[in-house]
């Protein structure tokens, strides 16, 4: 009898523990309405696609929750996935309207405007007449340049530093009661008050196309944009992870516009048009008092007789000077060493 009672107690306690665990577990997965993480939480989840490429299907929840899309549910970007196993999963369409309500217009949020901007930019797949450009597949889609960026919050309450200011959060809590909202709002705003990527990272993204020799040749682009940028002080500093140095976008995007509105350097409205370049040099954080002549500085130099003849001959002169100076001296140095060793051997024999 006693044994039965004990078993009842044990069953009761264990049931309570399981319910508590499930409750906690359900709380943690509340954002995952479709319970997608049931499978996608496993780091090894992957498959080989039709092209033989490995597709990693793992979602790191804590990383995702710190990304700019943390509030978008899985179904927001993958509305076509209805059953397990999934069938005919379509590519993510960034132009979809998602469930988030854009607060200023109170309409469903979408990146549709970006598509409009992009269609008028140098990166559009269609030309001015609305016809497809040559090699449309070379022009970038959203995901060619964008991943799901993480928040990069800034604190500038007393000093500017990366991270969140607890003092500011304290102020927010006076009126706003939900910590999750405060945290997201803070991140949303401060992440956008500075560059979300480092100049090196931006250059790497542009390099995916602009350093591809075949693509550069196909489109008749004049320079290898990123490796030439890397040879300037801007590029060298970017390579050492300077955040304050100008990257591709600072000079190629018209001031006050979005990267999606980038224009060709042949377009007189573009900031990279020869007469407009100085405007980007003179940005308040760069060279505000610079003379118009500063823009003549070749920010994409290449060691190439056709593209940068003056730089080519100047560099060649220094190569010859270096070789012409050091090679004879190196010759004397080695002959001297040889003669010394020979003399020492001779002395040792004597």
């Amino acid at each position: 009898m006693r044994c039965k009672k004990l078993l009842k107690y044990a069953a009761g306690i264990s049931a309570f523990v399981w319910v508590a665990v499930l409750f906690i577990f359900c709380e943690a997965r509340a954002a995952d309405i479709g319970n997608c993480l049931l499978c996608h939480k496993y780091p090894g989840l992957s498959r080989i696609d039709e092209n033989g490429d490995l597709k990693l299907l793992f979602i790191n929840e804590s990383v995702f929750n710190n990304s700019v899309h943390a509030n978008v549910k899985c179904e927001g970007c993958h509305p076509d996935i209805k059953k397990i196993p999934h069938e005919n999963v379509r590519k993510v369409d960034c132009m979809l309207e998602c469930h988030i309500i854009e607060p200023s217009s109170e309409k469903k949020f979408s990146h549709k405007d970006v598509e409009t901007f992009l269609s008028r930019s140098v990166h559009s797949k269609i030309d001015k007449e609305g016809k497809p450009k040559k090699y449309p597949e070379d022009y970038p889609d959203c995901k060619d340049c964008h991943d799901n960026p993480l928040y990069r919050p800034l604190s500038f309450f007393k000093k500017v530093r990366p991270g969140i200011s607890e003092i500011v959060l304290g102020r927010c809590r006076v009126c706003h009661k939900k910590d999750e909202f405060i945290f997201r709002f803070y991140n949303h705003i401060t992440t956008r008050l500075h560059a979300i990527r480092s100049p090196k990272n931006i250059a790497e993204v542009c390099a995916k196309c602009h350093e591809d020799p075949a693509l550069v040749a196909r489109h008749g682009l004049s320079r290898k944009a990123v490796s030439s940028y890397a040879e300037t002080f801007h590029g060298k500093a970017a390579n050492y992870l300077s955040e304050g140095i100008p990257d591709c976008l600072n000079c190629h995007v018209n001031i006050g516009e979005s990267v999606h509105q980038m224009l060709s350097h042949k377009n007189p409205e573009s900031i990279t048009f020869k007469d407009n370049k100085i405007k980007s040099c003179r940005m308040i954080d760069c060279h505000p008092h610079a003379s118009a002549k500063l823009a003549k500085y070749d920010v994409h130099p290449e060691f190439d007789k056709e593209k940068s003849p003056m730089e080519y001959y100047f560099t060649a002169f220094f190569l010859i000077l270096t070789g012409g100076t050091l090679l004879p001296l190196a010759g004397i140095m080695f002959l001297d060493l040889g003669r010394r060793l020979f003399s020492r051997k001779k002395e040792d024999k004597e």
Binding site: H287, H289, A290, S291, K293, L294, A295, K296, Y297, D298, P301, S308, M310, E311, F314
Partner: peptide, 16 residues
């Protein structure tokens, strides 16, 4: 002093 230098000299001077 690139800003001052290019007030006097041509901008190409920075490349050289």
């Amino acid at each position: 002093g690139q800003d001052l230098a290019t007030k006097i000299l041509p901008g190409e001077i920075i490349s050289f």
